[in-house]
């Protein structure tokens, strides 16, 4: 019987069994839901397939969203990526993440990861990593299992819903999931996975969820681009041997407590922050006609 309540538990289980976090959680899922590792692999491989389709569609899609607030930025970034300060791989990841988020905004097909509002981060970072490392599909799918395990712990000990924890719960969780996946894809240790999660989340603590007109568009779409890159930096720091002074489970605890103390106005209610700026209010009025 496999049981864990924290990232530290996952790391210890992986170390004691001389394996990866993904290997541990696939066995855990098998015990819990009576689905074989093969069945789980198929579902996760399908998720990866949909993620890739959403990236492909995202970086070519020019369509505006229902509200007209977003659309077409991934195409701009994709065209610009060779010229930027941060390098082509980083900008390609930003383009992919913005693209997936734009596909979401035009009612296209995406994988919630962990939510629809944060759906671009993990796919974009994982794709960039796979291209850099030349990972096999199996390695990618396993990294997605590790990402999922990280999300399971966050959901258990904090939250993955903007309405409960603000954007740190959605994009912050996605950043932690992506950073952990990227460490595993580069052959990093389970401990390094934990460090990457800590670093990624720590630097997004307290993030407000204040979307204009209550729609998953502004600032969500572009934020997906920023946070995909953020998760890559966190993975790189961990792989370089940088440690987090505050251990990962303490960071998740901090995220939980901050989430509880954030005002309701910045927890997906569209009653504060960017949503209630002069422009934000005008846009909401224009979209909903009141």
């Amino acid at each position: 019987m496999i049981s864990f309540n924290s990232i530290a538990d996952l790391i210890k289980l992986a170390e004691d069994n001389n394996t990866t976090i993904s290997d541990i959680v696939v066995k855990w899922e098998e015990e819990n839901s009576q689905t074989s590792p093969q069945q789980q692999y198929e579902v996760m491989a399908r998720n990866w397939e949909v993620m890739q389709e959403s990236i492909e569609k995202g970086i070519t899609n020019q369509q505006k969203s229902l509200s007209g607030l977003t659309g077409g930025d991934a195409v701009k970034l994709e065209a610009y990526k060779g010229k930027g300060y941060t390098g082509e791989a980083v900008l390609a990841a930003a383009a992919s993440a913005v693209g997936v988020s734009e596909v979401n905004a035009v009612m296209g097909r995406i994988v919630a990861c962990p939510t629809a509002g944060s759906c671009g981060i993990v796919p974009a970072a994982v794709k960039a990593a796979a291209e850099k490392n030349g990972n096999t599909e199996e390695e990618i799918v396993n990294a997605l299992f590790t990402a999922s395990a990280i999300g399971v712990v966050i959901e258990h000990n904090a939250s993955i819903a903007g309405a409960y924890g603000g954007c740190q719960a959605e994009c912050g969780s996605a950043a932690g999931m992506a950073a952990g996946a990227l460490v595993q894809m580069a052959g990093g240790t389970p401990e390094m996975v934990g460090t990457a999660v800590a670093l990624a989340i720590k630097n997004l603590l307290g993030l407000a969820c204040d979307p204009v007109a209550g729609l998953v568009e502004v600032p969500c779409v572009k934020r997906n681009g920023f946070v995909a890159v953020h998760s890559m930096v966190a993975a790189d720091m961990a792989l370089a041997g940088v440690k987090s002074v505050i251990p990962v489970d303490d960071v998740i605890d901090a995220m939980n407590r901050i989430g509880k103390s954030l005002p309701r106005a910045v927890k997906e209610t569209a009653e504060g922050g960017l949503a209630t700026t002069k422009t934000g209010l005008e846009l909401a009025k224009k979209i909903f006609g009141r």
Partner: peptide, 22 residues
């Protein structure tokens, strides 16, 4: 009880919102 792995990475859905659309 904890969520399952596919509650976190997944579901595959049409956007834009898991609560308001899916």
């Amino acid at each position: 009880s904890m969520k399952g792995l596919f509650d976190i990475v997944g579901p595959v859905m049409i956007g834009p919102s898991s609560s308001h659309t899916a």
